[in-house]
Amino acid sequence: MMNQPISLHWSYAYDCGAQAPLFGQHIERFLAQAHVSLRQKSDPGQSYSILPNFWSGYKSAAEIETDEGIVIGKLVLRRLQGADGCWHYDIHRSNSTSGEAAAYHFRTRDDPWRSTEGSWTIRSEQSDSGSFVGLEATGTTDRDCISITTSGKTVEIGRLEPGEKIVPFWAVSDWISSGAAEALISGEPAKVAVLENMSRLRNGISFRPLGLWRQELPSIGSEITMRGFMLSGQGLPPVYWWFAEDGRLLVVSSTFQTYVLETASSTNPIAKAGL
């Protein structure tokens, strides 16, 4: 594998020090493949590889020399607009380091904020040396109170503050694309709570633009222009979201993991809805 340095935006530049030495080459290759697929492929959903931002605690340095070695999981995002007008989300995420495979099914209203509608389900399966096999739960909102029910018991996971809108974490990308983000940035006094893993409520989230970044893709002699945003707040260290010019989500980078698009739908469901 070539080992020439790749210039990465600081928000996902995990390619030195204690981090994966070849992170730059890996993310560039994934982005190059995604860049091609944006033009050529047609898939019903979007699939992301999860790269570790640090090798510590994950794998030995030798194990991360290959694509197979560095990828620690996969995220599949599917959402379609149903006959009820709501957006139906079907999220699957696996993490080979923690051993968790989680699935989230939820609906959102057809509004710019992608507010949750009705109940949702969480199903996680655990595969490690422990005896815990997984969790099944149902989430609900009752006015400002958010709860999940598992093993027949209901646990409150948080409360919305007055006027606060609730947005599932994996609907944030659509929320950003819808124009709600611009409204928030321009000073609309809306408050947002993000529902992470559909079971952790993060109140008082702030949202800031990162501007444009032209990511060079030397493996295909091209580059890709991306628009970035930072999401952060109480209980939520910064998460950086990067979009292609047509609104497709390309990269999500949190403290410990970076999701990078593998394949992309040529039919953006957001665009199809005319939002």
């Binding site: 080979s96 923690s98 051993g99 996680s124 655990q126 490690d128 005896s131």
Partner: peptide
């Protein structure tokens, strides 16, 4: 042991390990 991760958890990655720890302990 309810949950231990696929490798021994040493430094970091509370970002996702802690979720599984909670789920296992809750269950």
């Amino acid at each position: 042991v309810l949950f231990y991760g696929q490798r021994q958890i040493e430094a970091g990655a509370g970002e996702f390990y802690d979720v599984s720890t909670t789920h296992a302990a809750m269950a």
